[in-house]
Write a protein that binds this DNA or RNA. Structure first.
Lengths: 122, 122
DNA sequence: TTTATATTTTTAATATTCTGGAAATATGGA
DNA sequence: TCCATATTTCCAGAATATTAAAAATATAAA
């Protein structure tokens, strides 16, 4: 029990550089108005995803601009894509959002939920 | 039940401009390496918080740089501060992180957890 | 009231990001 | 093959962000 909470603490402190880099990349990717719009649109679209042309029409955004932002989102692994003949279907990657949230909540109270003065850890 | 899930959907879509602006500001604030370091350090410090001088020493960062980043973090309401005589004590605002996470998770599956193909909503 | 300490503001240089038009690439159909 | 469609890459200008030294402000203690 004592040992356990110490382990949690260490785990928490040992996020490695690669993981932190992913976290920052993900936060960066989502922290832009255009990209957050794109991301939310993909979230709404669900499984089936959307093509660049569809998004371009809905958001009234040039395809080169969209392409730029989609590249950032997929580099950050926040968005996935598959080629389907001439089309490229983009979709939201919920698993990554999950990881991101995990990191932010693990930050809480230095990994000691029993000492938490907020309800994040509970 | 049907009506309920429709309500959830509308709620989800009706995040107003001010709230979305807060979300973006918070994501922006956290998406910088220096600021994420500062934030995590404050998270670890917990209730009692830290002064600029203390952080400056630990992070080996000039106080003017710290001040710049702390201003961004507190503008985004991700970090709180109180004056205590000559000192200013900064601390993490977990409530805001909570809200941020709420927004990102509410994005999931367009507010229909029962249709979620991931475990975020569950 | 002078001095020391804590922090912020100003400023300027540098770096990075965003945007969209135009050209390039890739693929499927006529 | 030739054409239309889907998307990306290239480019360059505009806008923003980051950094830290130096100066300014604020407060407490001697």
């Amino acid at each position: 029990m004592n040992a356990n909470s110490k382990d949690n603490k260490n785990e928490n402190e040992n996020y490695n550089a690669v993981e932190v880099k992913f976290i920052i990349e993900a936060l960066e990717a989502l922290s832009n108005e255009s990209r957050l719009k794109i991301f939310r649109m993909l979230v709404k679209a669900g499984h089936s995803g959307l093509t660049v042309t569809e998004m371009s029409k809905s958001l009234n955004m040039p395809m080169s601009t969209l392409s730029f932002h989609l590249a950032k989102l997929s580099q950050a692994n926040i968005v996935l894509f598959v080629k389907q003949s001439r089309f490229i279907i983009y979709s939201a990657n919920f698993e990554s959002v999950n990881k991101l949230i995990g990191y932010l909540t693990e930050s809480c109270c230095n990994g000691n939920p029993e000492e938490c003065f907020n309800d994040i850890c509970k």
